[in-house]
Design a protein around this nucleic acid. Structure first.
Lengths: 257, 257
DNA sequence: GCAAGTTGTCCTATACGCTATACAGATAGA
DNA sequence: TCTATCTGTATAGCGTATAGGACAACTTGC
């Protein structure tokens, strides 16, 4: 979780062991090789091994017992939030979890080239830019940067944005929301995002870019979202469809939530 | 490409800038902030900034001009592959791109606990484990670890696996493939994955875990896939559906490919 | 042409990652 | 109980990354 301040060699070994544990290659309850043994195996000093194990320990992945050894801990299952392909949070209500929003920035700006192009804006056309952090049970899990064309953004206030979902604001404002295209990728946490999400710089993040368009192809919203993978993931059910030779996966429609 | 011997801070800044360039956050042709400015922004010395820029320069991502500044170079256009929500590669044929597979490992093993559970295996039941790297135009973009119950895996050979898509093998073998559930997340590259994908250790990766089940709920395949985000991303089209007050996104069905 | 600002190069002092070693306290097995 | 082995802790020393300068060569805009 916080291996980013870690030196090079220790970080490498940390990632290596973390991968082996996560993949189940080293199953829970197993005793790891001793620190001197690991040092020998990896060709580093024992101090370096200890640094790696320290990180694993603060991640809660291992259990160190003096005199006995180091053991892989049973996962605690603080289950992350799960969203389906349409990015709706599911089961939030059933689980009795509370979400919140912190508005970090709000202003009207000249949008980045990529955003202007995606929203099909004219040259010089400005956008309302907002940066929000979403929380679940008081813990931040996503960092959202949105751009909305100025004429649409002016229909609601900064205070609205901090309380009402953006898409609701847009549809109440009369903007017609017809379709969207989104891409999912991965990236690293920069300094600002890392701080807002309570992460180390260089932590992995799930990245989502969504462009919402109206019926006439005009841009309504540009969303760039970064998620903590330990607290949020996309999940979807697929069904095998089609005739033999032409079979493929198709999505199972989302349950309302 | 190889900054692996690079020190800590310089490496971080290298990764950060590289990510921003790859994601288009800093568009091609743009001039970067000056080295002293970058040093100030990131709270490091100019020497460190220069180390990071050196790596970007040898990667061919930036263009440094004495007296003028540092500029983001136009990408050489190895556009990333795009997959839709059902994880089908799209437009591969139209683009005339060739994919390949390298088989890194193949054996029958006692599966990790998590896998055994997902596939609903009995205790002691073994699986066929394979590790493959997929290539596009000779470049690796994904690292796939699959587990298949032994009785199903025995119906095809190691050579088959290196040439024919796994799902095709499974369906030809008589296994009934009914549905699947998958989760998308993000993680960091460990040493082995990093080498196989030609990345630095600690690079961000898109992670997909898919469990394929037969009609009776029996496990058919467990897939753990890691993707280079610069060469691969998930993309999907959504449509706004439902009555007012109950509106939500639904997926636009994939085009056959 | 000139001034301001940029990258390229060199320097020294400091900070720190890493190694190597030693020893104390806890544990487990014979 | 005794012994081997493990983790926890501390120390000293080396090599190098980093900080913080200074200066030259070059470009751009005025």
């Amino acid at each position: 979780m916080d291996a980013s301040l870690e030196p090079l060699k220790a970080r490498r070994i940390y990632l290596l062991l973390r991968e082996r544990i996560a993949s189940g290659e080293i199953s829970p309850g197993t005793r790891l090789a001793s620190e001197p043994a690991l040092a020998l195996q990896h060709g580093v000093s024992r101090v370096t091994i200890r640094r790696a194990l320290d990180s694993l320990a603060t991640d809660g992945l291992i259990d160190r017992r003096v005199g006995a050894g180091t053991f892989v801990r049973e996962p605690e299952a603080p289950r992350p939030i799960v969203a389906d392909f349409s990015n709706m949070l599911t089961h939030l209500v059933e689980m009795g979890r509370r979400t919140g929003v912190r508005l970090l920035a709000f202003s009207y700006v000249q949008p980045p080239e990529a955003v202007a192009q995606a929203l099909a804006l004219g040259p010089g056309e400005r956008t309302q830019r907002s940066v929000r952090v979403r929380l679940i049970d008081g813990q931040p899990f996503s960092y959202l940067t949105t751009h909305v064309p100025e004429r649409i953004g002016l229909t609601y206030s900064e205070a609205d944005l901090a309380t009402v979902p953006l898409l609701t604001l847009l549809e109440h404002s009369g903007a017609l929301v017809e379709r969207a295209s989104q891409a999912i990728s991965a990236t690293l946490a920069g300094p600002d995002v890392a701080e807002a999400l309570g992460l180390e710089i260089g932590s992995p993040l799930l990245s989502l870019t969504r462009v919402v368009l109206g019926p006439d192809g005009s841009g309504v919203e540009h969303l760039h979202a970064l998620y903590r993978p330990d607290r949020y993931s996309f999940q979807m059910e697929l069904h095998r469809d089609g005739e033999a030779g032409e079979r493929r996966w198709s999505p199972v429609p989302a349950k309302a939530c």
